[in-house]
Amino acid sequence: MEFVQKFITTFQFIVEGLWVTIGVTVVALAVGFVLGILAGVARVYGNKFLAGIGTTYSVVVRAVPVIVIIFILFFVISSLVDLTAFWAGSLALGFASGAYQTEIFRGALRSVSGGQMTAASAIGMSRWQAIRHIILPQALRLALPAWGNEATLVLKDSTLVFAVGVPEVLRRAEYVKARTFDPFFAYSVALLLYLALTLVTTQVLRQAENRYRLRL
């Protein structure tokens, strides 16, 4: 009984960090999505200059630990623009995720058969129209499984934004641990929350995959 009571109290305290974790993850995934698509398209279909930018972004950012990107964005970029910790952390995480998403979308864009671009050109679509209306929609569907994996990785990386002071689930677990000197309950609750989030995310993406699967 005491066990249950303790668990509930701990849960109620830590769960308040859930929205922060979800918020950071969603913002980061969205930002990474936009960057990943831009850089992915630039790499596959851009001219030398754009492809160069896309490649540099992806290679450099993936070579640097995410935590370093977060620090740089928070401490360097945000000395120019006034960002809150939440936004700096989320944007930085998104900036990092964008590099990984670049690779995901690049692979997906490449696996769309060349005939699709030819057929789109043949009905008079410009290159950009073809990319936007024909190639990208197919690439996005092809990218879904890998993207789902990235989503769960970003969810876990969302713990890193505490580096700039965003108290997400794991940090709230640490508060409990520091206060109670009992890591077991604190981390068990955190584990359950992350597990639940991952399961929900995976489930939602699986539905999306089934719904939008490309029948080839």
Partner: peptide
């Protein structure tokens, strides 16, 4: 957006 990306990449490099 591309400009921002470039700035960030450059920022990241120099830093």
């Amino acid at each position: 957006i591309l400009l921002v990306v470039t700035a960030m990449v450059l920022g990241a490099c120099t830093a």
